[in-house]
């Protein structure tokens, strides 16, 4: 029997902002070394779910969490959770690519600089390693010292992923990472997700059902803040049990 706790486990969770419930009765878990798609229409609570796992809502006015949320077996909304350490374990990639107004190299090691400043001398090699892992090295190796802002949107998104990879997360939360990218860049990111899920637990919020089908083993359908259906991707896409899911997938 395998006693390793799942990377993420959520039990009877409810999230509200200033008393308004945004997520309710959330009960699910995510598997290691696999990708789970979180699908649902805009405003259904996909982003809130991802942000809650990384405790990114903490600073928001009126945020309240009820229930249990475990990351690698530790309850993260309990007392004494080191939020910065948690976020080091749970990497997050946003819809809009964000690079800091610094060079490509400095962006790649931005998080590393704070988590492992003692390895400063190794930063160039580490940057190369993570840029390679993000399938970006060949495109930027000759312009590492140029501002990251000159890269294309797709390259910026991969740089943001390389930057997150450098911190060493075991879980990757991706909030519509290809929503603002062209098809070629989308393809590059999808390739990257395929590679990431070999080692990490990837949670991918997406509107692109084709992408969810291509990349993910599991699917979670969120509607009006509740999980309406979850299960293996092939089963949910081919034979949805819930009427709401069926209606959403048939759009």
């Amino acid at each position: 029997m395998n006693d390793t706790p799942p990377p993420i486990e959520i039990r009877d969770a409810c999230v509200s902002f200033r008393g308004k419930t945004v997520l309710d009765e959330i009960d699910c878990e995510f598997r290691p070394r696999s990708a789970t798609a979180v699908i649902g229409s805009s405003g259904s609570g996909k982003t809130t779910l991802l942000r809650t796992i990384a405790r990114m809502n903490d600073g928001m006015d009126g945020f309240r969490f009820r229930g249990k949320l475990f990351v690698q077996g530790s309850e993260i909304y309990g007392n004494g959770t080191d939020v910065c350490r948690l976020r080091g374990k749970v990497g997050m990639v946003f819809q809009k690519p964000c690079v800091f107004p610094k060079s490509v190299l400095e962006n790649a090691v931005f998080g590393l600089k704070h988590h492992q400043p003692e390895r400063k001398k190794e930063f160039p090699e580490l940057a190369e390693r993570f840029l390679r892992e993000a399938f970006l090295w060949d495109e930027v190796k000759d312009r590492l010292h140029q501002p990251a802002a000159v890269l294309s949107q797709g390259q910026q998104q991969r740089l943001a992923i390389a930057r997150a990879l450098a911190v060493g997360p075991e879980i990757f939360l991706m909030d519509e990472p290809t929503a603002s990218l062209d098809p070629k860049s989308t393809q590059a990111i999808e390739e990257l997700v395929r590679s990431l899920k070999q080692k990490h637990c990837v949670v991918l919020a997406t509107h692109n059902l084709g992408q969810a089908r291509r990349l993910c083993e599991e699917v979670l359908f969120v509607c009006e803040g509740r999980i309406r259906e979850s299960g293996p991707a092939s089963r949910v896409f081919d034979n949805p049990l819930d009427e709401e899911t069926r209606a959403y997938l048939s759009q």
């Binding site: 990384a54 600073g59 350490r85 976020r87 964000c98 998080g111």
Partner: peptide
């Protein structure tokens, strides 16, 4: 806001966030 969010997502402490993102920006 996305600069702050990105810094937070990388696990930066509030002081690191201030030093590396808020003050330079």
């Amino acid at each position: 806001a996305h600069y702050r969010e990105s810094g937070m997502a990388l696990g930066l402490t509030p002081w690191a966030q201030i030093r590396s993102i808020v003050l330079p920006q």
